[in-house]
Design a protein around this nucleic acid. Sequence first.
DNA 1: GTACTGGGCCAC
DNA 2: AAACGTGGCCCAGTAC
Length: 547
Amino acid sequence: MIIVLDRRSTELRASVDGGELEPVGDLAAFVARFERDRPRWVWDDTSWWYPQLLAARVRVDRCFDLRLCHSILRLSELTAGSQLATAPIGPWDRPALEPRPRDDALFELDDADAEPLPDPVAEFQAQRAAVAASSEPGRIDRLLAVESAGALIAAEMQYAGLPWRAREHDEILTRILGPRPRAGERPARLAAVLERVRAAIDVPDLNPDSPVELLKHLRNAGLAVASTSQWELADIEHPVIEPLLEYKKLARLLSANGWTWLETWVADGRFRPDYVPGGVVTGRWATSGGGALQLPKQIRGAVVADPGWSLVVADAAQLEPRILAALAGDRAMMTAGAAGDLYAGIVASGTVETRDQAKVGMLGAMYGGTTGESGRILPRLARAYPRAIGLVEEAARAGERGEKVTTRLGRSSPPPSEAWREAQADASGESATEAATKRARSQARSWGRFTRNFVVQGSAAEWALCWMASIRARLRELADGAWFTDSAHLVFFLHDEIVVHCPAGQAESVAAAVRESAEEAGRLLFGSWPERFPVTVAIVDNYGQAK
DNA sequence: GTACTGGGCCAC
DNA sequence: AAACGTGGCCCAGTAC
């Protein structure tokens, strides 16, 4: 069953299985009634519809998020010839849709130039047509389904929140920075280390938070530095270095995740980040506000399970190189990963000497690194794993030619900008200057690094979506009809890592579900292909205790 | 006052 | 004195 929901008028309407649009009356009651038949809900934007349903304690199993699906179909090479992909840019291509029209006349006056919301029924039909005409409808349809499932999960995680102990957070800050000071003052330990910085270069009123000022005084003190970043300072011998690096560390914690952050983002014992599914070109999630995807390890100790509950923390081991091995069908690399630690397996094969070399080399291959140790190791990896390394090299060459690349399930990279194309065209002309050629070459390489990484990062993001969707389905079975936050539920996601909050008695079942879901995600992407996706699972009270 | 940019650094 | 992918957020500094 398919139900398209429409919010173009203040009276919400629905089309059931292709029927006429009819008023729904009370939305939550309507959805709850039809949800018993497990329809696929089709709506313009999950972040508009779903939070209000959750607030009314109505959960849905499946949806199509038309805006997210549109942006995939618009760019995908698998639907390149479709009407949807060739139509002019329209309202479905906007990053976020406009809010619901209001009755309020004044508001409408203000809002007069806002574009009307588009027709979801017509858009759904256009999307189905694009999928049906695709060279690989199964892949793209799976991508649309898991992308949409991700949108449901993001809304559910925000509703549930990550359990957060403000007192524990305060204790961590106090231990590292000193007690919370009055507004505008530095905490004691931060102030003390700043005095050591000022003394070391004899500048009593130094403002260490101004890079320009700091750089000037460091150079006056005789340090041959071009910036104040830690990678440059770390190697220098001078009494100011140690306290300065310490100051930067503490100041970062204070400004990014200090007491102000705590007051802004934690309420009622929960941190509720605003996840943005599909917010990154590669298909990764982004966040807006709260910085959930940059939660520093230092403060993860403030994430504490409720009394009688546990946290199941799981992360996929060496996800990206495993994805690459599977994408490329590189048996040798799969063999390296079969026993557990992929990097250790590369060492065991005799390709490199240390685990760190294996890791640096693989990351360099996937990011396009050419200098330093990763550059030196790459040729050895290329000999041992010609298919895997060949795949990322080919993705880079395609990008340098201005072509698209596509992930496992069918998300394609955007085309390079018009300026990029012009630069390439200028460089190939007869009258091209040496500078123009050099600039074009540099831009081409840069775009090649982007497409090189896109294939791996984007396919890994698809794996993670499949993993989460599968976990969500298994946890629903485990809940046995209970409201989802009263049973095991997802509370956190970090690219290749998830956290489930669950009654302690469920923890072992959840751990099993998480492992089974990782296997299922591998099958959803690669069928019966033998690459394995092992996950490390920890059952803890406190996120800081995991790994 | 707000809007924007660059430096810097956190995560993967 | 950066390179080597994807981001967000804070701060200082500047333009308006």
